[in-house]
């Protein structure tokens, strides 16, 4: 019973990650609105950030700042550094995505997937 509880509660961070991941992924796939797709993508990426950050935590560990005391337990700083990079990448992706959406809005007058496809189909037929 204790093992079960430990598995369920001790790994709560992973459950959170997976729930977030699925919410984000659902947003990417199921939404026709391009802004919502980007939002979904961001949630999806954030879940991965959580995965990394939570793995860096060492039980009883303090912030990884040298204290000079050899008995101090530090948390692992490397995942944080990695995620710092990943956040930069994520922000850039979002920026490029929104730039594209603005251009799409200018040129199609809509940011709904279905409307754009319909417009392009009409174009093909008249061409």
């Amino acid at each position: 019973m204790i093992v079960m509880t430990d598995q369920l509660l001790g790994q709560w961070n992973y459950y959170l990650v997976i729930i977030l991941m699925m919410i984000g992924f659902y947003g990417v796939i199921a939404r026709g609105n391009m802004v919502k797709k980007i939002v979904g993508l961001n949630i999806f990426q954030t879940s991965v950030f959580m995965l990394y950050i939570s793995m860096g935590k060492v039980a009883e560990g303090s912030a990884p700042i040298l204290t000079g005391d050899p008995t101090t337990v530090y948390s692992n700083p490397l995942p944080h550094v990695l995620i710092l990079t990943a956040i930069v990448v994520g922000v850039s992706t979002t920026a490029v995505g929104y730039a594209l959406i603005i251009r799409i809005q200018e040129s199609f007058g809509t940011i709904e997937d279905d409307d754009i496809i319909a417009q392009l189909d009409d174009e093909e037929e008249t061409a």
Binding site: F25, M34, L41, G97, I104, D113
Partner: peptide, 18 residues
Amino acid sequence: RALPAAFNYLILGTVGAT
């Protein structure tokens, strides 16, 4: 049509990288 093509490429590319 390059715009929606690039957007879809971005979405799927990012999902793949993630």
